[in-house]
Design a protein around this nucleic acid. Structure first.
Lengths: 208, 208, 208, 208
DNA sequence: GACTAAGCGAGACGGTACGTCGCGTCTTAAA
DNA sequence: TTTAAGACGCGACGTACCGTCTCGCTTAGTC
């Protein structure tokens, strides 16, 4: 991804912003398929060369551009005294983010590249997934403390159980992305990791 | 998708098979990005035109080709007397399918098109998701009968809760795709939909 | 060119006519560029194979088709007692023929093939140019007898002097193709081949 | 036609020349039918795209290429004191040009397009026919001054009478294109446009 | 205050693959 | 045997974007 965040030269930052802005505008208008390095250059009044100087290709640019919109939306979860509520808030912020353009369509268009190119995959992991998992950690800890979750709750699996269905619906099984979905997956997760209940099957975690 | 013509002419079926075979070979060798209509034509000894006569573009062809490998793998779940086991078997068939090339890489490369083009999305829905959901239905019914699942279990949500995390790991959070994952998601689902336990929260399904 | 004029099988002749008719219709509608073997087959209700059985390619077919319209138009010149008039009539039949669709456009489209492929060139020579030259011969002979033309008048050159400007205008220097042109070239020819002096015809240059 | 950009960048002119050279080479080797944009690209070491950036299609390219050979050959007619001689020189420059490859074959192959596509027709008119007609004008004026031609001589018709037979022979009635032809058409024209009587030139024309 | 080098705009270019068109061949089944 | 029907191999088309590559021009920041 583009480094060189801070520059001695103001032009650097100015053209960088113009490029990212135009990219987001174009993503909002069409889908990733119609995003073209040339169209970005044209709209931002920047030379194609300048874009390639900073991003390897249009996919890196697009991912950068959408992450700018994404990241600020995900505030640290606050303690509201209710694990279920906190989890729903956590997951619903993603659901709401993806439910509105251009985030949903952009993600749909980018996902193959993220899943396919190690660089992009790692960027997404480092800049989105890991931070989000870290944000989730205190929620889980509070949940354990409250007795809502089992002490050995697996953070990674829980994270995937929360977000997987959201993306599955976004990508494959189709709309709607709404609060019902958020609540549904949270309840599933709570069921899975709650300390109570008959499900404490002794052979439960017998490996393959 | 390609209309499967019941043809009096064997050439039809022969060239169709040659195309699909070559496509799968190429998918197994590289990723979807390096799959080219021209390379398929070259390898299968078929004219490019013949490919375009049957498939709109390389994405439809690729999806057709991978589905040929997929579909037969998904047998109807058998009653083994254990809901958890049946669900794990169900989900693990997908996990194992995606864990080996070319299915996993192919899916990673195709997902954006499936998520983006209505035709492909519908094809995937009709030919993969819906049939699988139908296969899941008797498992659920048996689970309800056994008292393992609540009678009002939502088939669609359950299906998404099972498969979502698998695809999330395939596409975003990274490997491994293994039996632990299958077991983990099944336990989550069983927790979510089990009739017992404290989680039967009355305000549980309060809408947004 | 297609031989097999008479056939023991009536189907032969019937499909042959259907093909030629459709070809002429299509030529009248568009130009040669949009004449397609497939469109001919479609319109005439005949299989493409049947067309290729009789004509080497669409150019032979097209030439055959337009010649059907052409040839009957060129009647043997009648003796009207005036060489200039007879020549003008002779040349003007060509001018008028080419001035109306589809003959003009068809000729414009076919000319490169005629000029380029020996078979077509020969066919045109044998079936159009030579017969026309023969038709011209008695006119010349009468002209010589009347003292309007020199006895050593070169038939071939005269023929070319008459028709060349017509085709030049059709193909290169642009419209109009009209009676002025016919008269102009005839006067030139008469000038060229008249025994000296006699050609000073007072009404010679009465224009349109 | 290709806009001749006065470029600060030498690459422009270099690739332009490479393309035109290759085109002429290929035209000299085969006919227009075997001229292919792809073959031009291959031979000139230029990308197909670069060709299409400058010429609409292979026909415009071919016409441009042959005109480069043509135009410089047609010098302004010089006053030699003899109208007949000047006219023969004028017309014979065309005859000789067309008599040798690749000009003749190229013209045969291009003529349909020139006659058919307004853009090409206009280009030919503007860049070949009109300038040639202008070159002819002083010859005519001198001829009138000398009393060899009538004062109301129609330049356009005269031009067509001169060139028509040449092209007619090139395209339809077949070879040879030689000096006899040039002399023949010039004599015809002189006959047509001479002030009455004067044309009785004793040495006028011993035919072949 | 002029000098110099980095950053930039402009845009031509080689290249890959696309999806399309129409050709002429070939195979099959019905008439 | 001839035909209609139509799949097929093939070659070229013209297009879209890619990512690379000069070329000056601008514009700081340095001497």
């Amino acid at each position: 991804m583009s480094d060189r965040i801070q520059s001695p030269d103001a032009r650097l930052e100015r053209s960088r912003q113009a490029i990212l802005d135009s990219t987001r505008e174009l993503l909002a208008e069409g889908d990733v398929g119609s995003l073209t390095v040339e169209s970005v250059a044209a709209r931002s009044g920047v030379a194609k060369t300048t874009i390639y100087r900073r991003w390897r290709d249009k996919w890196e640019l697009a991912l950068d551009a959408v992450m700018i919109d994404w990241l600020p939306r995900f505030d640290d979860p606050v303690d509201v005294g209710d694990t279920r509520e906190e989890l729903i808030t956590f997951i619903d912020s993603v659901v709401r983010s993806l439910a509105v353009p251009p985030q949903g369509p952009a993600m749909r268009g980018l996902i193959s590249r993220i899943a396919t190119e190690p660089d992009l995959g790692r960027a997404y992991l480092d800049r989105v997934i890991e931070p989000r998992r870290e944000q989730l950690k205190p929620v889980i800890e509070r949940g354990i403390a409250r007795g809502d979750l089992r002490p050995d709750t697996d953070l990674r699996l829980l994270h995937e159980l929360l977000l997987g269905p959201v993306f599955y619906r976004l990508l494959l099984s189709g709309p709607p992305l709404d609060r019902d979905l958020s609540a549904g997956v949270v309840d599933a997760v709570l069921g899975a990791f709650s300390p109570r209940g008959a499900r404490s099957n002794p052979k439960r975690r017998a490996r393959r």
